[in-house]
Write a protein that binds this DNA or RNA. Structure first.
Length: 500
RNA sequence: CGGGGCGUAGCGCAGUCUGGUAGCGCAACUGCUUUGGGAGCAGUGGGCCGGGGGUUCAAAUCCUCUCGCCCCGACCA
Protein backbone atom coordinates (compact mmCIF):
# COMPACT_ATOMS: atom_id res chain seq x y z
CA UNK A 1 0.00 0.00 0.00
CA UNK A 2 2.29 2.81 1.17
CA UNK A 3 4.40 2.35 -1.89
CA UNK A 4 6.68 5.28 -1.45
CA UNK A 5 7.90 3.98 1.86
CA UNK A 6 8.09 0.40 0.73
CA UNK A 7 10.14 1.06 -2.34
CA UNK A 8 12.99 2.55 -0.48
CA UNK A 9 13.30 -0.52 1.66
CA UNK A 10 12.87 -3.06 -1.07
CA UNK A 11 15.23 -1.70 -3.69
CA UNK A 12 18.69 -2.51 -2.36
CA UNK A 13 19.10 -6.28 -2.29
CA UNK A 14 20.62 -5.99 1.16
CA UNK A 15 24.13 -7.17 0.23
CA UNK A 16 22.84 -10.73 0.44
CA UNK A 17 24.88 -13.65 -0.88
CA UNK A 18 24.90 -12.26 -4.42
CA UNK A 19 24.67 -15.77 -5.83
CA UNK A 20 24.50 -14.57 -9.37
CA UNK A 21 24.72 -10.94 -10.26
CA UNK A 22 22.01 -9.83 -12.64
CA UNK A 23 22.69 -7.31 -15.35
CA UNK A 24 19.69 -5.25 -14.30
CA UNK A 25 19.06 -4.04 -10.83
CA UNK A 26 16.62 -3.95 -9.27
CA UNK A 27 15.26 -7.30 -10.39
CA UNK A 28 11.72 -7.70 -11.59
CA UNK A 29 10.67 -9.10 -8.26
CA UNK A 30 12.27 -6.29 -6.31
CA UNK A 31 10.76 -3.40 -8.20
CA UNK A 32 9.12 -3.95 -11.54
CA UNK A 33 8.62 -0.32 -12.71
CA UNK A 34 12.19 0.54 -11.85
CA UNK A 35 13.42 -2.64 -13.52
CA UNK A 36 11.60 -1.61 -16.69
CA UNK A 37 13.27 1.77 -16.82
CA UNK A 38 16.67 0.26 -16.25
CA UNK A 39 16.13 -2.27 -19.01
CA UNK A 40 15.34 0.44 -21.51
CA UNK A 41 18.41 2.37 -20.47
CA UNK A 42 20.70 -0.66 -20.41
CA UNK A 43 19.63 -1.65 -23.91
CA UNK A 44 20.28 1.92 -25.04
CA UNK A 45 16.85 2.14 -26.65
CA UNK A 46 15.47 5.45 -25.44
CA UNK A 47 15.85 8.24 -22.94
CA UNK A 48 13.90 11.15 -21.59
CA UNK A 49 14.23 14.37 -23.50
CA UNK A 50 14.20 18.02 -22.49
CA UNK A 51 10.58 18.03 -23.62
CA UNK A 52 8.37 16.98 -20.78
CA UNK A 53 6.78 13.62 -21.43
CA UNK A 54 8.44 13.17 -24.83
CA UNK A 55 11.22 10.67 -25.29
CA UNK A 56 14.23 10.37 -27.52
CA UNK A 57 14.21 7.04 -29.30
CA UNK A 58 17.85 6.07 -29.74
CA UNK A 59 19.16 4.18 -32.77
CA UNK A 60 18.79 0.72 -31.26
CA UNK A 61 15.21 1.40 -30.14
CA UNK A 62 14.41 2.99 -33.45
CA UNK A 63 15.78 0.00 -35.38
CA UNK A 64 13.33 -2.21 -33.50
CA UNK A 65 10.40 0.09 -34.20
CA UNK A 66 11.45 0.26 -37.82
CA UNK A 67 11.32 -3.52 -38.08
CA UNK A 68 7.95 -3.56 -36.35
CA UNK A 69 6.57 -1.07 -38.84
CA UNK A 70 8.15 -2.39 -42.03
CA UNK A 71 6.66 -5.84 -41.68
CA UNK A 72 3.20 -4.69 -40.74
CA UNK A 73 3.16 -2.02 -43.41
CA UNK A 74 3.54 -4.74 -46.03
CA UNK A 75 0.65 -6.67 -44.56
CA UNK A 76 -1.56 -3.59 -44.68
CA UNK A 77 -0.69 -2.90 -48.30
CA UNK A 78 -1.33 -6.51 -49.09
CA UNK A 79 -4.79 -6.05 -47.58
CA UNK A 80 -5.42 -3.12 -49.91
CA UNK A 81 -4.56 -0.21 -47.67
CA UNK A 82 -3.07 2.92 -49.23
CA UNK A 83 -0.70 5.04 -47.20
CA UNK A 84 -1.21 8.80 -47.18
CA UNK A 85 -0.37 11.73 -44.96
CA UNK A 86 -2.59 14.24 -43.20
CA UNK A 87 -1.66 17.40 -41.25
CA UNK A 88 -0.24 17.38 -37.76
CA UNK A 89 -2.47 20.31 -36.84
CA UNK A 90 -6.21 19.96 -36.68
CA UNK A 91 -8.61 22.92 -36.48
CA UNK A 92 -10.30 22.89 -33.10
CA UNK A 93 -13.66 23.07 -34.79
CA UNK A 94 -12.99 19.74 -36.49
CA UNK A 95 -12.38 17.97 -33.24
CA UNK A 96 -15.59 19.45 -31.91
CA UNK A 97 -17.74 17.93 -34.61
CA UNK A 98 -18.25 14.53 -33.02
CA UNK A 99 -19.69 15.00 -29.55
CA UNK A 100 -18.26 11.95 -27.74
CA UNK A 101 -14.98 12.33 -29.54
CA UNK A 102 -14.36 15.88 -28.25
CA UNK A 103 -15.31 14.84 -24.80
CA UNK A 104 -12.81 12.01 -24.92
CA UNK A 105 -9.87 14.04 -26.13
CA UNK A 106 -10.41 17.67 -25.12
CA UNK A 107 -8.72 17.13 -21.75
CA UNK A 108 -5.39 16.12 -23.26
CA UNK A 109 -4.89 18.32 -26.28
CA UNK A 110 -1.90 20.54 -26.96
CA UNK A 111 -3.19 23.73 -28.57
CA UNK A 112 -1.45 25.94 -31.11
CA UNK A 113 -2.63 29.51 -30.72
CA UNK A 114 0.03 31.73 -32.30
CA UNK A 115 2.10 31.85 -35.44
CA UNK A 116 4.93 34.17 -34.45
CA UNK A 117 7.33 34.80 -31.59
CA UNK A 118 8.70 38.07 -30.37
CA UNK A 119 11.11 39.30 -27.70
CA UNK A 120 9.47 39.22 -24.29
CA UNK A 121 9.72 41.94 -21.63
CA UNK A 122 12.19 39.81 -19.59
CA UNK A 123 14.24 38.67 -22.55
CA UNK A 124 13.51 35.37 -24.24
CA UNK A 125 10.71 34.80 -26.66
CA UNK A 126 6.98 34.97 -26.22
CA UNK A 127 4.09 34.31 -28.61
CA UNK A 128 3.40 37.61 -30.30
CA UNK A 129 0.04 38.98 -29.13
CA UNK A 130 -0.49 40.37 -32.59
CA UNK A 131 -0.07 36.91 -34.09
CA UNK A 132 -2.88 35.05 -32.41
CA UNK A 133 -4.66 32.58 -34.65
CA UNK A 134 -8.27 33.25 -35.38
CA UNK A 135 -8.98 29.58 -34.88
CA UNK A 136 -6.54 27.57 -32.76
CA UNK A 137 -5.26 24.21 -33.89
CA UNK A 138 -4.76 21.14 -31.78
CA UNK A 139 -1.78 18.88 -32.28
CA UNK A 140 -3.51 15.71 -33.46
CA UNK A 141 -4.36 13.29 -30.68
CA UNK A 142 -5.76 11.07 -33.48
CA UNK A 143 -6.90 11.94 -36.99
CA UNK A 144 -10.49 10.76 -37.42
CA UNK A 145 -11.79 14.25 -37.99
CA UNK A 146 -9.26 15.62 -40.42
CA UNK A 147 -9.23 12.44 -42.45
CA UNK A 148 -13.01 12.25 -42.32
CA UNK A 149 -13.18 15.79 -43.62
CA UNK A 150 -11.09 14.77 -46.63
CA UNK A 151 -13.12 11.62 -47.13
CA UNK A 152 -16.26 13.70 -47.27
CA UNK A 153 -14.83 15.44 -50.33
CA UNK A 154 -13.32 12.36 -51.92
CA UNK A 155 -16.34 10.14 -51.66
CA UNK A 156 -19.27 10.88 -53.95
CA UNK A 157 -20.48 7.52 -55.15
CA UNK A 158 -20.59 3.95 -53.92
CA UNK A 159 -17.97 3.43 -56.64
CA UNK A 160 -15.54 5.43 -54.49
CA UNK A 161 -15.89 2.83 -51.75
CA UNK A 162 -14.29 1.21 -49.99
CA UNK A 163 -11.64 3.82 -49.27
CA UNK A 164 -8.89 2.31 -47.19
CA UNK A 165 -6.18 4.64 -45.84
CA UNK A 166 -3.39 4.49 -43.34
CA UNK A 167 -0.70 6.82 -42.07
CA UNK A 168 2.43 6.18 -40.04
CA UNK A 169 2.90 9.22 -37.88
CA UNK A 170 3.12 10.77 -34.46
CA UNK A 171 0.31 12.00 -32.25
CA UNK A 172 0.21 13.94 -29.02
CA UNK A 173 -1.84 13.44 -25.92
CA UNK A 174 -0.96 15.56 -22.94
CA UNK A 175 -0.51 12.76 -20.44
CA UNK A 176 -0.19 13.50 -16.76
CA UNK A 177 2.20 10.70 -16.07
CA UNK A 178 4.57 9.27 -18.64
CA UNK A 179 6.91 6.32 -18.96
CA UNK A 180 9.28 5.52 -21.81
CA UNK A 181 7.38 3.83 -24.65
CA UNK A 182 4.44 2.82 -22.45
CA UNK A 183 2.92 6.25 -22.19
CA UNK A 184 4.52 9.33 -23.66
CA UNK A 185 2.89 12.60 -24.62
CA UNK A 186 4.11 12.30 -28.14
CA UNK A 187 4.06 8.80 -29.49
CA UNK A 188 4.41 7.01 -32.80
CA UNK A 189 1.87 4.72 -34.37
CA UNK A 190 0.02 3.97 -37.51
CA UNK A 191 -3.60 4.92 -37.85
CA UNK A 192 -5.80 3.22 -40.38
CA UNK A 193 -9.00 4.93 -41.49
CA UNK A 194 -11.44 3.21 -43.81
CA UNK A 195 -14.86 3.99 -45.22
CA UNK A 196 -17.35 1.42 -46.51
CA UNK A 197 -20.68 1.18 -48.17
CA UNK A 198 -22.23 -1.13 -45.61
CA UNK A 199 -22.17 -1.75 -41.88
CA UNK A 200 -21.14 -5.34 -42.45
CA UNK A 201 -18.07 -4.39 -44.43
CA UNK A 202 -16.97 -1.94 -41.77
CA UNK A 203 -17.42 -4.51 -39.05
CA UNK A 204 -15.51 -7.07 -41.12
CA UNK A 205 -12.68 -4.58 -41.61
CA UNK A 206 -12.33 -3.85 -37.91
CA UNK A 207 -12.28 -7.56 -37.20
CA UNK A 208 -9.90 -8.40 -40.03
CA UNK A 209 -7.31 -5.89 -38.87
CA UNK A 210 -7.62 -7.16 -35.32
CA UNK A 211 -6.79 -10.54 -36.77
CA UNK A 212 -3.72 -9.10 -38.44
CA UNK A 213 -2.58 -7.63 -35.14
CA UNK A 214 -3.03 -10.92 -33.38
CA UNK A 215 -1.06 -12.74 -36.03
CA UNK A 216 1.65 -10.11 -36.07
CA UNK A 217 2.07 -10.21 -32.30
CA UNK A 218 2.20 -13.97 -32.28
CA UNK A 219 4.34 -14.59 -35.35
CA UNK A 220 6.75 -11.67 -35.01
CA UNK A 221 6.67 -10.22 -31.51
CA UNK A 222 6.25 -13.64 -29.87
CA UNK A 223 3.41 -12.80 -27.52
CA UNK A 224 -0.16 -13.74 -27.09
CA UNK A 225 -3.23 -12.40 -25.34
CA UNK A 226 -6.96 -12.02 -25.58
CA UNK A 227 -8.79 -10.22 -28.33
CA UNK A 228 -12.38 -9.17 -28.20
CA UNK A 229 -14.83 -6.29 -27.88
CA UNK A 230 -14.33 -3.71 -25.18
CA UNK A 231 -17.04 -2.88 -22.71
CA UNK A 232 -18.92 0.38 -23.21
CA UNK A 233 -16.85 2.11 -20.54
CA UNK A 234 -13.60 1.35 -22.37
CA UNK A 235 -14.84 2.14 -25.86
CA UNK A 236 -13.10 4.69 -28.10
CA UNK A 237 -14.94 8.02 -27.91
CA UNK A 238 -17.22 8.02 -30.92
CA UNK A 239 -17.08 4.31 -31.72
CA UNK A 240 -19.97 1.89 -31.91
CA UNK A 241 -17.65 -0.92 -30.98
CA UNK A 242 -13.99 -1.15 -30.00
CA UNK A 243 -11.98 -4.34 -30.27
CA UNK A 244 -8.87 -4.64 -28.22
CA UNK A 245 -5.93 -6.98 -27.88
CA UNK A 246 -4.93 -7.41 -24.27
CA UNK A 247 -1.62 -8.89 -23.21
CA UNK A 248 -0.42 -9.78 -19.72
CA UNK A 249 2.78 -8.25 -18.39
CA UNK A 250 5.08 -10.03 -15.97
CA UNK A 251 3.87 -7.94 -13.05
CA UNK A 252 0.30 -9.08 -13.55
CA UNK A 253 -0.97 -5.93 -15.19
CA UNK A 254 -2.62 -5.94 -18.60
CA UNK A 255 -1.59 -3.82 -21.54
CA UNK A 256 -3.66 -3.00 -24.57
CA UNK A 257 -1.39 -3.88 -27.47
CA UNK A 258 -3.71 -2.74 -30.27
CA UNK A 259 -7.24 -1.50 -30.90
CA UNK A 260 -9.61 -1.51 -33.79
CA UNK A 261 -12.80 0.52 -33.94
CA UNK A 262 -16.06 0.12 -35.76
CA UNK A 263 -17.13 3.76 -35.88
CA UNK A 264 -20.55 3.04 -37.42
CA UNK A 265 -21.94 6.17 -39.02
CA UNK A 266 -21.02 8.44 -36.13
CA UNK A 267 -18.17 10.20 -37.86
CA UNK A 268 -19.66 10.06 -41.32
CA UNK A 269 -22.75 11.80 -40.03
CA UNK A 270 -20.91 14.50 -38.11
CA UNK A 271 -18.36 15.06 -40.88
CA UNK A 272 -20.66 14.59 -43.85
CA UNK A 273 -19.11 11.50 -45.46
CA UNK A 274 -21.97 10.80 -47.87
CA UNK A 275 -22.32 8.93 -51.12
CA UNK A 276 -24.93 8.15 -53.68
CA UNK A 277 -25.76 4.46 -53.39
CA UNK A 278 -26.59 1.78 -55.90
CA UNK A 279 -30.26 2.68 -55.42
CA UNK A 280 -29.56 6.31 -56.29
CA UNK A 281 -30.23 7.43 -52.75
CA UNK A 282 -27.84 9.34 -50.53
CA UNK A 283 -26.29 7.40 -47.67
CA UNK A 284 -23.67 7.87 -44.98
CA UNK A 285 -20.54 5.76 -45.16
CA UNK A 286 -19.55 3.32 -42.43
CA UNK A 287 -16.08 3.98 -41.11
CA UNK A 288 -13.40 2.26 -39.07
CA UNK A 289 -10.08 3.16 -37.49
CA UNK A 290 -7.36 1.05 -35.91
CA UNK A 291 -3.85 1.30 -34.50
CA UNK A 292 -0.92 -0.01 -32.57
CA UNK A 293 1.75 2.25 -31.19
CA UNK A 294 5.21 2.49 -29.67
CA UNK A 295 3.47 1.35 -26.50
CA UNK A 296 3.34 -2.14 -27.96
CA UNK A 297 7.12 -2.03 -28.03
CA UNK A 298 7.22 -1.21 -24.33
CA UNK A 299 4.84 -4.06 -23.66
CA UNK A 300 7.11 -6.42 -25.51
CA UNK A 301 9.95 -5.49 -23.18
CA UNK A 302 7.79 -6.18 -20.13
CA UNK A 303 6.64 -9.50 -21.51
CA UNK A 304 9.94 -10.96 -22.64
CA UNK A 305 12.54 -9.32 -20.43
CA UNK A 306 14.38 -11.05 -17.61
CA UNK A 307 16.67 -9.84 -14.85
CA UNK A 308 19.46 -9.41 -17.40
CA UNK A 309 17.38 -7.09 -19.57
CA UNK A 310 15.35 -7.21 -22.72
CA UNK A 311 15.10 -10.32 -24.89
CA UNK A 312 14.49 -9.39 -28.51
CA UNK A 313 12.11 -11.61 -30.44
CA UNK A 314 14.35 -12.85 -33.27
CA UNK A 315 12.10 -11.87 -36.17
CA UNK A 316 12.16 -8.16 -35.31
CA UNK A 317 15.53 -8.03 -33.56
CA UNK A 318 17.69 -5.21 -34.97
CA UNK A 319 20.67 -7.50 -34.50
CA UNK A 320 19.87 -11.19 -34.62
CA UNK A 321 23.42 -12.44 -34.27
CA UNK A 322 26.32 -10.72 -32.54
CA UNK A 323 29.75 -12.11 -33.20
CA UNK A 324 32.34 -11.57 -30.48
CA UNK A 325 35.98 -12.08 -31.38
CA UNK A 326 37.67 -13.50 -28.30
CA UNK A 327 41.15 -12.06 -28.62
CA UNK A 328 43.93 -13.62 -26.56
CA UNK A 329 46.84 -11.63 -27.90
CA UNK A 330 47.31 -8.91 -30.44
CA UNK A 331 49.35 -10.97 -32.84
CA UNK A 332 46.41 -13.22 -33.63
CA UNK A 333 43.76 -10.54 -33.69
CA UNK A 334 44.11 -9.64 -37.35
CA UNK A 335 43.56 -13.16 -38.54
CA UNK A 336 40.76 -13.70 -36.04
CA UNK A 337 38.91 -10.56 -37.12
CA UNK A 338 39.18 -11.70 -40.68
CA UNK A 339 37.64 -15.03 -39.76
CA UNK A 340 34.83 -13.34 -37.79
CA UNK A 341 34.09 -10.98 -40.65
CA UNK A 342 33.95 -13.88 -43.05
CA UNK A 343 31.38 -15.70 -40.89
CA UNK A 344 29.42 -12.46 -40.54
CA UNK A 345 29.43 -11.90 -44.29
CA UNK A 346 28.07 -15.39 -44.89
CA UNK A 347 25.34 -14.87 -42.32
CA UNK A 348 24.40 -11.52 -43.84
CA UNK A 349 24.24 -13.06 -47.29
CA UNK A 350 21.91 -15.68 -45.89
CA UNK A 351 19.67 -12.84 -44.68
CA UNK A 352 20.50 -12.63 -40.97
CA UNK A 353 21.04 -9.29 -39.24
CA UNK A 354 24.59 -9.82 -38.04
CA UNK A 355 27.23 -7.65 -36.43
CA UNK A 356 30.78 -8.20 -35.32
CA UNK A 357 31.58 -6.47 -32.05
CA UNK A 358 35.07 -5.31 -32.86
CA UNK A 359 35.17 -2.67 -30.17
CA UNK A 360 38.32 -2.33 -28.11
CA UNK A 361 36.76 -3.67 -24.92
CA UNK A 362 37.28 -6.63 -22.69
CA UNK A 363 35.42 -9.70 -23.90
CA UNK A 364 33.18 -10.10 -20.82
CA UNK A 365 32.01 -6.52 -21.16
CA UNK A 366 31.03 -7.13 -24.74
CA UNK A 367 29.14 -10.23 -23.69
CA UNK A 368 27.10 -8.32 -21.15
CA UNK A 369 26.47 -5.60 -23.65
CA UNK A 370 24.98 -8.17 -26.02
CA UNK A 371 22.95 -9.65 -23.17
CA UNK A 372 21.51 -6.30 -22.16
CA UNK A 373 20.59 -5.53 -25.75
CA UNK A 374 18.71 -8.82 -25.84
CA UNK A 375 20.47 -10.05 -28.96
CA UNK A 376 18.99 -13.51 -29.65
CA UNK A 377 22.20 -15.31 -30.55
CA UNK A 378 25.69 -14.46 -29.39
CA UNK A 379 28.54 -16.10 -31.26
CA UNK A 380 31.97 -16.34 -29.66
CA UNK A 381 34.94 -16.96 -31.89
CA UNK A 382 38.43 -17.37 -30.49
CA UNK A 383 41.60 -19.12 -31.50
CA UNK A 384 40.07 -22.52 -30.71
CA UNK A 385 37.09 -21.99 -32.98
CA UNK A 386 39.15 -20.54 -35.76
CA UNK A 387 41.51 -23.49 -35.82
CA UNK A 388 38.61 -25.93 -36.03
CA UNK A 389 36.62 -23.76 -38.42
CA UNK A 390 33.84 -23.65 -35.85
CA UNK A 391 31.85 -21.24 -33.71
CA UNK A 392 30.54 -21.25 -30.14
CA UNK A 393 27.11 -19.74 -29.66
CA UNK A 394 24.78 -18.90 -26.80
CA UNK A 395 21.03 -18.29 -26.88
CA UNK A 396 19.80 -15.20 -25.06
CA UNK A 397 16.56 -16.85 -24.02
CA UNK A 398 18.29 -19.83 -22.39
CA UNK A 399 21.44 -18.17 -21.11
CA UNK A 400 24.93 -19.52 -20.71
CA UNK A 401 23.80 -23.13 -20.23
CA UNK A 402 22.90 -23.17 -23.90
CA UNK A 403 26.49 -22.64 -24.98
CA UNK A 404 27.16 -24.86 -27.99
CA UNK A 405 30.08 -25.36 -30.34
CA UNK A 406 29.52 -26.34 -33.94
CA UNK A 407 31.40 -26.22 -37.21
CA UNK A 408 30.72 -23.15 -39.27
CA UNK A 409 28.85 -25.16 -41.87
CA UNK A 410 26.72 -26.90 -39.25
CA UNK A 411 25.99 -23.52 -37.64
CA UNK A 412 25.01 -21.99 -40.97
CA UNK A 413 22.64 -24.88 -41.56
CA UNK A 414 21.14 -24.66 -38.08
CA UNK A 415 20.88 -20.93 -37.39
CA UNK A 416 17.46 -20.38 -38.95
CA UNK A 417 16.13 -23.20 -36.82
CA UNK A 418 17.77 -21.75 -33.72
CA UNK A 419 16.18 -18.36 -34.28
CA UNK A 420 12.81 -19.99 -34.90
CA UNK A 421 13.23 -21.99 -31.75
CA UNK A 422 14.01 -18.87 -29.74
CA UNK A 423 10.87 -17.30 -31.15
CA UNK A 424 8.83 -20.33 -30.17
CA UNK A 425 10.35 -20.49 -26.73
CA UNK A 426 9.46 -16.85 -26.06
CA UNK A 427 5.97 -17.32 -27.43
CA UNK A 428 5.35 -20.47 -25.42
CA UNK A 429 6.68 -18.87 -22.29
CA UNK A 430 4.28 -16.03 -22.73
CA UNK A 431 1.39 -18.33 -23.58
CA UNK A 432 2.00 -20.36 -20.44
CA UNK A 433 2.42 -17.22 -18.40
CA UNK A 434 -0.84 -15.80 -19.71
CA UNK A 435 -2.69 -19.03 -19.01
CA UNK A 436 -1.20 -19.27 -15.53
CA UNK A 437 -2.28 -15.71 -14.86
CA UNK A 438 -5.84 -16.00 -16.06
CA UNK A 439 -8.30 -16.88 -13.31
CA UNK A 440 -12.01 -17.52 -13.25
CA UNK A 441 -14.37 -15.97 -10.79
CA UNK A 442 -18.11 -16.45 -10.66
CA UNK A 443 -19.18 -13.87 -8.12
CA UNK A 444 -18.34 -10.46 -6.77
CA UNK A 445 -17.25 -12.11 -3.55
CA UNK A 446 -14.76 -14.29 -5.37
CA UNK A 447 -13.39 -11.28 -7.23
CA UNK A 448 -13.08 -9.35 -4.01
CA UNK A 449 -11.26 -12.24 -2.35
CA UNK A 450 -8.91 -12.54 -5.28
CA UNK A 451 -7.75 -8.95 -5.12
CA UNK A 452 -7.86 -8.70 -1.37
CA UNK A 453 -5.42 -11.60 -1.29
CA UNK A 454 -3.07 -9.43 -3.32
CA UNK A 455 -3.27 -11.53 -6.47
CA UNK A 456 -2.89 -10.13 -9.96
CA UNK A 457 -3.62 -11.19 -13.52
CA UNK A 458 -6.69 -11.49 -15.67
CA UNK A 459 -9.86 -12.40 -13.85
CA UNK A 460 -12.45 -13.82 -16.19
CA UNK A 461 -15.97 -13.24 -14.95
CA UNK A 462 -19.49 -13.67 -16.38
CA UNK A 463 -20.57 -10.48 -18.17
CA UNK A 464 -23.72 -10.24 -16.07
CA UNK A 465 -21.60 -9.31 -13.09
CA UNK A 466 -20.91 -5.94 -14.70
CA UNK A 467 -24.41 -4.95 -13.58
CA UNK A 468 -23.48 -5.48 -9.95
CA UNK A 469 -23.05 -2.02 -8.45
CA UNK A 470 -21.01 -3.27 -5.53
CA UNK A 471 -18.53 -4.80 -7.97
CA UNK A 472 -18.31 -1.55 -9.90
CA UNK A 473 -17.64 0.28 -6.69
CA UNK A 474 -14.94 -2.21 -5.75
CA UNK A 475 -13.36 -1.95 -9.20
CA UNK A 476 -13.28 1.82 -8.96
CA UNK A 477 -11.65 1.76 -5.57
CA UNK A 478 -9.01 -0.71 -6.72
CA UNK A 479 -8.31 0.56 -10.22
CA UNK A 480 -9.54 -2.64 -11.82
CA UNK A 481 -10.77 -2.13 -15.35
CA UNK A 482 -12.56 -4.28 -17.85
CA UNK A 483 -10.09 -5.26 -20.56
CA UNK A 484 -12.16 -7.05 -23.17
CA UNK A 485 -14.78 -9.72 -23.71
CA UNK A 486 -12.68 -12.45 -25.31
CA UNK A 487 -13.87 -13.72 -28.66
CA UNK A 488 -13.09 -17.22 -27.49
CA UNK A 489 -15.85 -16.99 -24.88
CA UNK A 490 -18.35 -15.61 -27.37
CA UNK A 491 -19.49 -12.73 -25.23
CA UNK A 492 -20.24 -14.71 -22.10
CA UNK A 493 -17.29 -13.42 -20.11
CA UNK A 494 -15.27 -10.31 -19.54
CA UNK A 495 -11.68 -9.97 -18.39
CA UNK A 496 -10.87 -7.76 -15.43
CA UNK A 497 -7.37 -6.56 -14.64
CA UNK A 498 -5.24 -3.74 -13.43
CA UNK A 499 -3.65 -2.21 -16.46
CA UNK A 500 -1.09 0.10 -18.00
C1' C B 1 -4.37 17.53 -10.91
C1' G B 2 -3.83 15.32 -5.38
C1' G B 3 -0.26 12.54 -1.99
C1' G B 4 4.84 10.95 -1.22
C1' G B 5 10.08 10.87 -2.63
C1' C B 6 14.12 13.30 -5.18
C1' G B 7 17.44 16.93 -8.28
C1' U B 8 25.40 17.60 -6.20
C1' A B 9 30.87 14.97 -12.30
C1' G B 10 28.40 10.56 -17.71
C1' C B 11 25.82 7.05 -13.83
C1' G B 12 24.87 5.92 -8.51
C1' C B 13 25.30 8.60 -4.11
C1' A B 14 27.46 11.31 0.67
C1' G B 15 27.66 16.22 2.36
C1' U B 16 22.19 20.00 3.95
C1' C B 17 19.80 19.16 10.39
C1' U B 18 24.43 22.58 12.96
C1' G B 19 26.47 28.04 6.73
C1' G B 20 33.20 28.47 6.37
C1' U B 21 37.59 26.79 -0.42
C1' A B 22 33.08 20.28 -3.52
C1' G B 23 33.64 14.64 -1.87
C1' C B 24 33.16 9.00 -2.59
C1' G B 25 32.19 4.65 -5.83
C1' C B 26 31.56 3.22 -10.81
C1' A B 27 32.36 4.93 -15.74
C1' A B 28 35.92 7.86 -18.95
C1' C B 29 41.14 8.92 -20.33
C1' U B 30 46.85 7.34 -20.09
C1' G B 31 50.38 3.36 -19.15
C1' C B 32 51.57 -1.70 -17.95
C1' U B 33 49.67 -6.56 -16.86
C1' U B 34 45.08 -8.95 -18.46
C1' U B 35 40.91 -10.99 -21.72
C1' G B 36 36.24 -17.97 -23.05
C1' G B 37 30.47 -14.61 -17.84
C1' G B 38 31.19 -8.09 -15.04
C1' A B 39 39.96 -7.81 -14.15
C1' G B 40 44.51 -5.65 -11.23
C1' C B 41 48.03 -1.74 -10.18
C1' A B 42 49.52 3.31 -10.94
C1' G B 43 48.16 7.97 -12.71
C1' U B 44 44.86 11.93 -15.20
C1' G B 45 40.72 14.81 -16.54
C1' G B 46 35.97 16.14 -15.33
C1' G B 47 31.10 20.47 -11.30
C1' C B 48 26.58 27.46 -12.88
C1' C B 49 25.44 21.50 -6.10
C1' G B 50 18.26 21.91 -11.49
C1' G B 51 17.05 27.47 -12.20
C1' G B 52 15.61 32.60 -10.33
C1' G B 53 15.28 35.81 -6.14
C1' G B 54 16.49 36.73 -1.02
C1' U B 55 19.17 36.45 4.14
C1' U B 56 24.56 36.63 5.38
C1' C B 57 31.25 38.90 5.78
C1' A B 58 30.27 33.94 3.68
C1' A B 59 25.02 29.54 0.88
C1' A B 60 25.09 22.82 -1.99
C1' U B 61 23.56 23.94 3.18
C1' C B 62 18.83 28.86 5.67
C1' C B 63 14.16 31.48 3.39
C1' U B 64 11.17 32.03 -1.09
C1' C B 65 9.48 31.24 -5.95
C1' U B 66 10.05 28.11 -9.99
C1' C B 67 11.38 23.95 -13.43
C1' G B 68 12.12 18.82 -13.90
C1' C B 69 12.30 13.51 -12.59
C1' C B 70 10.45 8.97 -9.92
C1' C B 71 6.41 6.19 -7.25
C1' C B 72 1.06 5.88 -5.89
C1' G B 73 -3.72 7.78 -7.10
C1' A B 74 -7.13 10.41 -10.41
C1' C B 75 -7.25 10.69 -15.63
C1' C B 76 -6.13 8.10 -20.01
C1' A B 77 -8.46 4.69 -28.29
Amino acid sequence: MSNAAQQKDSSPPAAAPAAQRTAISPTRAENFPEWYQEVVKAADMAENSPVRGSMIIKPYGWALWENMTAIFDKWLKNYGIQNAYFPLLIPVSFLAKEAEHVEGFAKECAVVTHHRLEKGPNGGLIPSPSAELEEPYVVRPTSETIIGDAMARWIQSYRDLPLKLNQWNNVMRWEMRTRLFLRTSEFLWHEGHCAFETADEARADALHVMGLYKKFFQDYLAFTGYDGPKTAEERFPGADETFGFEAMMQDGKALQAATSHDLGQNFSKSLGIKFQGRDGKEAHAWTTSWAYSTRTLGGMIMMHGDDDGIIMPPRVAPIQIMILPVVKNESESGELMEFCNKVAEDLKKAGFATQVDGRDMRTPDKMWSAVKKGIPVRVEIGQREMEQNSVTFVRRDLGRESKTTATVSAFMAAIQGVLDDIHNTLLNRHKNFTAANTFDAKSTTEIRDFYTAGKTGFVRVPVELLNDQSLNQFRKENAISTRCMPFEDEGRSVLLAKSY
